[in-house]
Simulated assay, not measured.
Amino acid sequence: MAKNRFSDSSGPSQRQLRVGELMRRALSDLLNRGDIHDPDLNRLSLTVGEVRVSPDLRIATIFVLPLGGGNRDEAIAGLKRNKGEIRRLLSKEVILKNAPELRFMIDDTFDRMDHTRALFERDDVRRDLDGEGPQDPDTPEDT
């Protein structure tokens, strides 16, 4: 029996990962070279953290973060304003049957890592991780 292409699998396919990484590198190069004709966007230093591509490769969600974490709204507005030009330049760099629709989002990976790190630093969490927390009454204690 053939595999259903549109079923919810455990994650993205190798093809999606490969195309996403190619797009991430190409977009990073475009932004570093200043190929986009927008002075407001060119003065920002943006990090392209990840590109997630839909299974049919028609939609690419691009996660970006300005250097230092500031000017987030300005960065997203500049990218959305120049979406057509970015799509055209990307289609020249990454050869695909169709140029994907681009969607830009802020990469909050670093914020989530900081939050997780702060949780692990809390005394009650540290106590539980060290095994000094309260015992479950159903589990026998070692004597």
Rank of each mutant, 00 (worst) to 15 (best):
S10G: 11
P66V: 03
M23R: 00
R117L: 15
V64S: 06
D8H: 03
T47A: 11
V48Q: 00
F104M: 06
A118F: 04
I62A: 04
E132C: 01
D130M: 15
R18N: 10
H115A: 14
R25K: 13
D128K: 07
R117W: 11
M23G: 02
R88C: 11
G84T: 10
E141I: 11
E121G: 09
P66K: 01
A60V: 10
R5A: 14
G133E: 06
S9V: 06
L22K: 01
A60P: 07
D123C: 03
D56E: 05
I106W: 04
R43H: 12
K92E: 15
T61V: 13
R25I: 15
R5T: 12
E85D: 09
D114W: 01
D111E: 14
L67Q: 09
I86Y: 01
D73T: 07
G78Q: 04
E21C: 04
L79Q: 06
G131T: 03
T47Q: 05
A26F: 01
P12W: 00
G68N: 02
S9I: 09
K3A: 14
D124E: 14
L17G: 03
N82T: 10
Q14V: 12
G20C: 06
R122L: 14
L102Y: 08
E74K: 07
K92T: 15
R52S: 09
D29T: 12
V51P: 04
R126Y: 11
G68H: 01
G49Q: 02
M23T: 04
P137A: 13
R15H: 06
A75N: 02
L67W: 13
A99K: 04
Q14M: 11
L67C: 09
L41V: 05
D38A: 08
D123A: 14
N82Q: 10
L65F: 02
V48M: 03
D108W: 00
G78R: 00
D123W: 00
T61C: 06
A118T: 11
V53K: 00
R43W: 02
M23I: 14
A118E: 13
T143V: 13
A77E: 09
T47I: 11
D56S: 07
M23W: 00
N98T: 12
I36M: 11
D38T: 09
P66N: 03
P100G: 08
L89H: 05
